[in-house]
Structure formats: structure tokens, C-alpha cells
Design a protein around this nucleic acid. Structure first.
Length: 299
DNA sequence: AAATCGGGCAACCGCCCAAAT
DNA sequence: TATTTGGGCGGTTGCCCGATT
């Protein structure tokens, strides 16, 4: 079953948009909204494919687009979101108001990818591609599935954020100990993403039966009881290492959060080591200090 | 001054998915 | 239920322009 082309290719203009075309498109959308992209070009008096109009609008003409170079903070955010979401540019763009998926994709392909490569970080997995060992020299780390890694990172972020949130709420109960502003941002940021459509899509994938894994946490081993909620951090108990993995929405009970150093994955014990990987470190450090410094140091 | 090279970015292509029929 | 259609997305291309030779 073939698919009909989105529009007639003949007689349509292609290539760069002229100012007149831009004006026609903007004027039409301001008056009528875009409605059906397929019929828009004819109604707006444009000799363009509907797809081309949509692209021009969403990537260039939309009034809420923030143009200009990316700030170091934005670049940092792109790297961190890419570590979680992979090449899902639209999902990354959704977390960065004013930036388009195309812009972010271009930034990644032309700048960030090369930067990561040049400092020995695999831009797809966000892992160090070589680990130097004092005994045997550089070691090649075996690759892990990107989807597996992203799920694990999602889980890590969510659980750490929830743990922080519960700690913060207990701190807030004691007015004499004000909350550090950066901590609040961390929690809100990751919980916001987790509860967005992006996080939801990951939860849905999980429900559909995709492989899941226990989560990572680089926090030191400790245990705290906060407002009736137990937060465990540290090495994972042996009994749980072999158990099947929980669906992200379902915790063992609603009063416990377990943050283990290292995560397991049913298909590969190598991935237990991933808790120390650079991407996670990058991820958890956001957005307090300027952790782009590790990149800047190389350039 | 001219030719070549390389980076950046806008735009296109084709696939996927959900809604409509 | 099967098929069609439109929108959205990610990968890729190709043009433009500044830097270098």
C-alpha cells in the first residue's frame, strides 16, 4: 500500500523562502490560524507544499522563537536532556521554550557532538569511550543499549528528585533551616519533566513490556527517615538484585524510596558500572554549578 | 585576488503514528 | 477492520559564507 504524496510536487516552489512568502504566511496564520497545513498554501496564496509551510512557521516564523546563539546554560541543558532522551529533538525542544527541534538538532550535530567526541565521550551513550586503567592502559567500555540507558537515567532522575522533594518538605517544616535555592530547582526541574508528556511516554513504553531496570544513584550510602517516608541510599541488597524490576509508577509501597548505587540490567552485568558514568554525573549536577567547565577546560 | 575548504543552518525527504473514513 | 490521510519527527542534503591557502 503506497502512500499518496502530501501534496502535488509539480508547480510548487522549493528552496529558500523569500520575504514576501514569509509575510504571506505570517499574515494568513495571524488571521486564520494554520488550520489544515495541506490546504493552507492555496488559501494563503503560496506556491508551497503544506509541509514546507509548517516547517517554515515552526522553525522560523513563529513569534515565540528565541533566535540567536545558545548560551552555555542552554548547551548544558541540551547535553543533559540528550543523555536522558536521546535523539528525540522535539522532546528536548519541548523542555526549552523558544528553541526549535531543528535548531537543537543542528546545535547537536555541529557543535556538541564534536565536543563530546573530542573529550572521549560517546555522544550517543554519553559514556566515556575509553577508560584509562593504571594497570592495563585504556580499556574499551562495552556498549549498552541507548534505550536501556535512557530508561535507567530517567528512573534515576525521578527517584532522586522525589527523594529530594521529600527531604525538602521536611526541611520546610523546620523554618529555621531555609532551603538552598539550587536544590529546589533540581527537584522541580526533573519532576516537571517526569510528569510531562515526555516522562509519560517513557512510562507508557514501560507498561507495554519493554525491559526495565533498577536505578542508579551516586549518593553515599545512607538512610534517612523523613516525614514518615524511608529513603534508602547505598548498595543494593542482594535479595533485590535478582528480582524483577518495578514499573516506575509503582514503588514497593508509598512510603519508601530506594536509591541504590549502581543499577542492574537483566541482560548485562557490565551496566552495573554505569552508575559512575559521566552522563549521570552531568545529569545529577544540573543546574547548580557550572558543570560545563569540564568541556570548557578542553577548549 | 582567486580558488578551495569547511562549518553552520535552513529546508527537504521519507517514515511513523494517530485520527478519520 | 482495513485503508486513507495529515501531522509530526528525525535524518540528511545542499547552499551560503567566512576562513584559509
Amino acid at each position: 500500500m503506497g502512500r499518496a504524496p502530501c501534496c502535488e510536487k509539480t508547480g510548487l516552489k522549493r528552496g529558500p523562502w523569500t520575504q514576501e512568502e514569509d509575510e504571506l504566511l505570517v499574515e494568513y496564520i495571524k488571521k486564520n490560524g494554520h488550520g489544515s497545513w495541506r490546504s493552507l498554501p492555496k488559501l494563503a496564496g503560496l506556491l508551497r507544499c503544506g509541509k514546507s509551510c509548517r516547517l517554515r512557521w515552526t522553525n522560523y516564523l513563529r513569534p515565540d522563537i528565541k533566535r540567536g546563539p545558545f548560551s552555555p546554560e542552554e548547551e548544558k541543558l541540551v547535553i543533559q536532556l540528550h543523555a536522558i532522551l536521546g535523539n528525540r529533538w522535539a522532546a528536548i525542544a519541548a523542555q526549552m521554550p523558544g528553541r526549535t527541534d531543528n535548531e537543537i538538532k543542528n546545535l547537536w550535530n555541529t557543535h556538541l557532538r564534536k565536543r563530546l567526541l573530542s573529550i572521549g565521550i560517546d555522544p550517543q551513550t554519553h559514556e566515556l569511550t575509553t577508560i584509562s586503567s593504571p594497570l592495563v592502559g585504556p580499556l574499551k567500555r562495552p556498549p549498552a543499549s541507548p534505550s536501556t540507558r535512557h530508561m535507567a537515567q530517567w528512573e534515576s532522575a525521578r527517584l532522586e528528585a522525589e527523594a529530594r522533594l521529600s527531604m525538602e518538605s521536611s526541611i520546610l517544616l523546620a523554618p529555621s533551616t531555609p532551603l538552598p535555592p539550587n536544590k529546589k530547582t533540581n527537584t522541580d526541574y526533573f519532576l516537571r519533566i517526569w510528569h510531562s508528556e515526555v516522562g509519560n511516554s517513557f512510562r507508557n513504553i514501560n507498561i507495554k513490556g519493554e525491559k526495565t531496570e533498577k536505578i542508579a544513584c551516586s549518593s553515599p550510602a545512607s538512610q534517612a527517615s523523613v516525614s514518615g517516608m524511608t529513603i534508602e541510599m547505598g548498595p543494593k541488597p542482594e535479595t533485590e538484585l535478582s528480582s524483577s524490576n518495578p514499573e516506575p509508577e509503582s514503588k514497593p509501597d508509598n512510603t519508601s524510596i530506594h536509591l541504590y548505587a549502581g543499577f542492574t540490567h537483566s541482560s548485562s552485568s557490565n551496566e552495573v558500572e554505569d552508575s559512575s558514568d559521566t552522563a549521570l554525573q552531568l545529569f545529577f549536577d544540573f543546574p547548580g554549578q557550572n558543570d560545563m567547565s569540564f568541556l570548557e577546560a578542553h577548549f
